[in-house]
Design a protein around this nucleic acid. Sequence first.
DNA 1: CTGAAAGCGCTTACAG
DNA 2: CTGAAAGCGCTTACAG
Lengths: 350, 350
Amino acid sequence: MATIADRDMASLGGQRDTHPTLAEVAAQAGVSLSTASRALRPGASVSEETRRRVRLTARRLGYEPNRLARSLRTRSSTLVGVIVPDIAIGFYARTVKGAQDALERAGYQVVVMNTQREASHERAALRTLLEHRVDGILLATSGGFEQPPRVPVVFFDNLVDGSGTAQVALANREGMALLVDHLVGHGHWRIGYVGAPPIATSGIERLAGFEQASAAAGLEAAPDYVSLGDEVWSAESGRRAARVLLALREPPTGLVAASDTLALGAISAIREAGLRVPEDVAVVSFDDPFFGDLIDPPVTALQRNERELGELAASLLLHTLTTGSAGPPTEVRLPVELVVRRSCGCHGMG
Amino acid sequence: MATIADRDMASLGGQRDTHPTLAEVAAQAGVSLSTASRALRPGASVSEETRRRVRLTARRLGYEPNRLARSLRTRSSTLVGVIVPDIAIGFYARTVKGAQDALERAGYQVVVMNTQREASHERAALRTLLEHRVDGILLATSGGFEQPPRVPVVFFDNLVDGSGTAQVALANREGMALLVDHLVGHGHWRIGYVGAPPIATSGIERLAGFEQASAAAGLEAAPDYVSLGDEVWSAESGRRAARVLLALREPPTGLVAASDTLALGAISAIREAGLRVPEDVAVVSFDDPFFGDLIDPPVTALQRNERELGELAASLLLHTLTTGSAGPPTEVRLPVELVVRRSCGCHGMG
DNA sequence: CTGAAAGCGCTTACAG
DNA sequence: CTGAAAGCGCTTACAG
């Protein structure tokens, strides 16, 4: 009772009051700690009358169970962490939403950590999550991943060779082939690549995919035609990378951008140079820019189902969480699809 | 030792091994639990030799402190929660990043929760955060906020009358006045509003701002000229809302969109109707669309510093966290600025 | 159905 | 500098 009184005093004094504990609820309700605990937890054997009384006083006191204590005791957090390089990028944001949906349906809470693409931030995020004993992790790594943690990890977007429980990514190479081939179909022979440094999976695979597709199409894949922006795939760096290509003695007549931001940058570089898209230089993009059909000109791009990517990663995690299975890491690739608009030279809608 | 042996067995057997505890580290290092604890914590008085030994064995065992236990004991989590309606919206994503920067600099970890704009999700997120005993919360509410929690809360974007520690939002009304006045400057008299339902602060204030500015400019602010989309501010709903306006007997000649998504929707509706922007219908937007100068036509819009909004919210929280001050809730408005492009009829760059 | 007790993994006065 | 002990707020066998 004394503590309760103190609490009241404190709140009268305008002090932020402290969290009531289960022990206080129990005392107020006139039951033991164990009974109070059971009354609050569904499915435990308590008399209806007791349960009601405890619940009432809990509500009255504004009781909020302490999950720290609970998880500590039960050794389970029903918490899943999602780590992304940059939540401000539509791709990641939508992936996260997809994952969150699936995870919440399964009764897990999701916490999102943003690494700003720095390995040190990623390490910190990983540590925090692990220290909070999350049950599992969805990770789009930026290189901060070191040794496999003690909980299941599903990698997405950026994969790590043979680590983790499962790996989910877009069909990067196939996508690039689609893009290059489409430009080739328009009669282009000098095709440039506006990309990102081959640091993580998507950077590596898209570049490789471009080179393979170029070679397969018999294009002279001069290394000159590959121009890379910065590691955050910024539009500004795409602009710069495109400028380099346009300044060549024999500039490419078609550009493949490795992402929507890069494509937007490339289009402005082309405009700056006083050239037209697609008449002077055609552009196609790996990612579909938001409202890509309103861009001038509407951009031909690969469409992906990002929500699905997130949901897929989540269900792979849920699978190992519920079955505890430790089978060999599954690798799943999500197909991409070409949406033809006008930046490639087609007379599509838009 | 037995538990250690068990652990080894388990890992040999391919089982995921369990987290070693501080007690195990202490045992292996041949010191007491308390000494081990001190050795791992900077600034505690331990001999250098002991400290080194403990740290080494901790690393060798892959020890990860259990934050649940630590926070439970210390009653502090150095965790701050950020709750947003929709992380996939650029505005929120960038705000979150700004907040995260500031918070991490101050030594806090940030966890982000996404409510998908549902009050029930928001309540769940709030509960989870509170149950994890976060030290403070940054909240862009979707209506799930009920009674003030026991930790400091800073509201941003969507405010709640007189609640919380501080409130940060954009200068919605002033922004709307800027937009309407600009269109009036172009000679428009029939100006329509493509907005969102007046549910939360931005919806309410932008609508009110539009109506006030219209009235102030002496426009016949026929209620007909207000057309609202859905509560998630979707581009598609903007398209529909604009269609309604365009179908009027005396359709507006200028449109003010309450957000970038709504503006994009409105522009496509205008195009669909076989009309041109800005010749037939001028458009201005509250939010600056990503790469708005590549949109056709480049859209005249209000520019905000979203990162700054996040940082501001964070520093207000940090202030009360460090000073414990419980002064009256501060309300801060972030100014917005008009970026003139071409969708309004100006011959700006782009 | 209910209560007393042990224990989850830490930290931190309190002694020495 | 180091150790034994109490305690953070819960849950869960174990008895009754």
